[in-house]
């Protein structure tokens, strides 16, 4: 799933840096993800994984790193199954 998340971040140009430089634990905000880009990423994730983020997940922490996103998306995907 992390690979798919990486692809989405890359394809939607969420970060001003190249994806190869980004490790799973890196803080995406520190790498330059703007709040506008973070919302675009949330929309892309909802679309790609057919999920809907509940309000409690719509905060900075949920989207702070690739592994944090992975955890949240996995939780929603498994909850649906």
């Amino acid at each position: 799933m992390a690979t798919q998340i990486r692809e989405l971040i890359g394809n939607h140009k969420i970060l001003p840096v190249s994806m190869e430089r980004v490790r799973d634990e890196d803080d995406l905000y520190e790498l330059g993800m703007t709040s506008f880009a973070s919302v675009q990423l949330m929309l892309a994730l909802e679309e790609a994984f057919d999920i809907e983020f509940p309000e409690r997940m719509l905060n900075r922490k949920t989207f702070a790193s690739i592994s944090a996103i992975d955890r949240s998306v996995s939780e929603l995907v498994s909850g649906r199954a």
Binding site: S35, V39, M42, L43, E55
Partner: peptide
């Protein structure tokens, strides 16, 4: 502008 972006996803 900022709020309109947030409202794309926040209910």
């Amino acid at each position: 502008g900022n709020t309109s972006n947030l409202l794309l996803i926040s209910k």
